[in-house]
């Protein structure tokens, strides 16, 4: 069983939902990232996504673009991301994934990339610019190494397409809450909630929602219809600003509504 599956099963048993945090690898530094993941685990994060910085991140908003740019300027590269993960393998228990655009994976070599993922304890990868149609080969390669490839759905995905995507889905489904790039938004559309409910009736795989989530109020709105929420820009901004104590506080606050009604009220 993959560690992501284990984590979702464990949380379900406790009546909790997953808090998935995105951090840009190499921001503020290699060691800094390792410390942040360790601290995040202590503060209540269940799963970590490490962003591999890329020169042309078309799915990301200004905050993560800026973070990627800073990390690249500081000399971050794919090999160093694996160094970070190697250290995490010894120092944290939570499952961690890589979020990377496809070109760095392709250039590194898909087979070599999958092997390094397995060696460094990476449970899965998320590739925002790799649509379902192009994912078959790399999914097979990753599977051989025990690493999952996360699938995306959006409020605009037609039902027929969603069915095909869900057939291959593993670990969890990444549900993009709204049109647009990563980064905070004020509210969600009503179609979004409807679509989310619909998708959950179609699959037994956990569904996690991401893009634009930055407050406990937003999480309360969608909490009943998801198995986890993904928060990136909101946390990354704190790291850019050097407000690490605030980051731990934010994590604790945002985990609250995910603890489940029973635990929440206690």
């Amino acid at each position: 069983m993959n560690r992501i599956d284990e984590k979702f099963a464990e949380l379900k048993g406790k009546g909790e939902k997953a808090l998935i945090a995105y951090f840009t690898a190499g921001l503020p530094s290699v060691n800094g990232t390792i410390e942040i993941v360790k601290g995040a685990e202590k503060s209540g994060v269940d799963i970590v996504e490490l962003g591999v910085p890329f020169s042309d991140p078309i799915a990301d908003g200004p905050i993560i673009q800026d973070a990627s740019f800073r990390a690249l300027e500081a000399g971050m590269n794919v090999d160093k991301v694996f160094d970070i993960c190697k250290a995490l393998k010894r120092s944290v228990k939570l499952p961690y994934l890589l979020m990377t655009y496809y070109n760095p994976v392709y250039k590194y070599g898909c087979v070599k990339f999958a092997r390094r993922c397995a060696e460094t304890g990476i449970s899965g990868i998320i590739i925002p610019d790799l649509p379902f149609e192009e994912s078959r080969d790399i999914r097979k390669i990753l599977k051989k190494h025990g690493t999952i490839l996360v699938s995306f759905l959006t409020p605009f995905t037609p039902l027929k397409r969603a069915k095909r995507i869900l057939k291959d889905a593993e670990g969890f489904v990444y549900f993009i809450t709204s049109a647009g790039v990563t980064g905070p938004r004020k509210s969600f559309s009503s179609e979004m909630a409807k679509k989310l409910k619909e998708i959950r009736t179609m699959t037994g795989i956990p569904v996690s929602a991401g893009f634009g989530i930055s407050s406990a109020v937003q999480i309360e709105q969608i909490c009943d219809n998801v198995d986890g929420v993904i928060i990136g820009s909101f946390f990354v901004k704190k790291i850019i600003e050097g407000k690490i104590e605030q980051l731990w506080a934010d994590i604790k606050e945002l985990k609250m509504p995910l603890l489940g009604k029973r635990n929440y009220l206690r």
């Binding site: 890329f54 020169s55 078309i58 090999d79 070109n103 760095p104 392709y106 250039k107 590194y108 610019d129």
Partner: peptide
């Protein structure tokens, strides 16, 4: 060398880590 940029697979100018 071969790679992906702006939504398609083609030749691109990139470093050994796939940064454009």
């Amino acid at each position: 060398s071969k790679g992906m940029l702006h939504g398609n697979f083609s030749y691109v100018l990139q470093d050994k880590y796939g940064q454009i």
